[in-house]
Design a protein around this nucleic acid. Sequence first.
DNA 1: ATTACAACTGATAATAAATAGCGACAATCT
DNA 2: AGATTGTCGCTATTTATTATCAGTTGTAAT
Lengths: 161, 161
Amino acid sequence: MDEIRNDDNKKETRNTRQKKLIIDCLNKYGSNHMTVEEIFNLIQQQDTQISIATVYRNLRLLEEQGLVNKVFVADDATAYYEIKDAASSHSHHHLICRQCGAIIDFEDDLLEALEKMITLTKGFQVQDHHVAFYGICRDCTEKNKAAQDAVEKPAPDEARQ
Amino acid sequence: MDEIRNDDNKKETRNTRQKKLIIDCLNKYGSNHMTVEEIFNLIQQQDTQISIATVYRNLRLLEEQGLVNKVFVADDATAYYEIKDAASSHSHHHLICRQCGAIIDFEDDLLEALEKMITLTKGFQVQDHHVAFYGICRDCTEKNKAAQDAVEKPAPDEARQ
DNA sequence: ATTACAACTGATAATAAATAGCGACAATCT
DNA sequence: AGATTGTCGCTATTTATTATCAGTTGTAAT
Ligand SMILES: [Zn+2]
Ligand SMILES: [Zn+2]
Ligand SMILES: [Zn+2]
Ligand SMILES: [Zn+2]
């Protein structure tokens, strides 16, 4: 009988205005991997009454339902959120820029082979993985190069701001 | 000439009793990836006066000097520490058991290829990476199998504790 | 050994991210 | 409409970590 009662543990979720605002927000800016604060600040412009506790609560619920993705960036204890739509459900990796903090998505499946190897050599049954590459993004690389050039050849005036 | 002046920014570090205790502790249990609390509790047995703030401080210094490694496990906001000796300086990956929480080291270099690809396709200059595989460790897999067997064939008494 | 100076210490306050508790509200179903 | 109960906004709490600060100690030069 216990098993039957267990069906109950998928508690039904409601469609509140606040939840819709959060999903809309993530759909709009979600590819930027937003913090709770950022989400809260944006939503406040449409709903000045909303509480940040509600944002936390809903993000947790949405994550439990598998509708959003909670991303951690080592070295930074705060969570970042993104929509987990059809395209990105296919768990991707993150490129994190040490200069500007940008979090960039990267699709790839090369780790499947590695997972098989781990199961074989370590007896560890891999369910999924979190991968982050740290470095300097394209934009910052270009900015740095420009700044470097400006130093090398004294530069035509406007190069210095 | 700038390079010479840069030597200054390595502020000199001192050899205190507390720092030694922390390194000893990590050398002894370091392969277990300990939390600050765990390190603090163990050291307290040898130095009842030590403050947990000192443990935090020294771990931060040691990490900045590259002597210890700070490991984050997504979904868990607390940091884990391990010694970064010759063997493990060669940045390894972590297998994290969802059942017992074990953090297991895994040596591998297959990601170099992936890093090259990222630089090519995304223009992102990879400096290093953090990789974690989540799943069930060998011990837990075996325990689960044993438990499962115990249910299937009613079991010779001692199987139930 | 004495001195001097900055890095360090222990105790505690402060910060930051996230959660828990609670009375009131409102989404959903009959 | 009425009942149920998930959710809301508010506030207090918890947890991990850092900042502060007066007193201490490692280190190196005298
Ligand atoms: Zn960047
Ligand atoms: Zn992403
Ligand atoms: Zn395990
Ligand atoms: Zn490790």
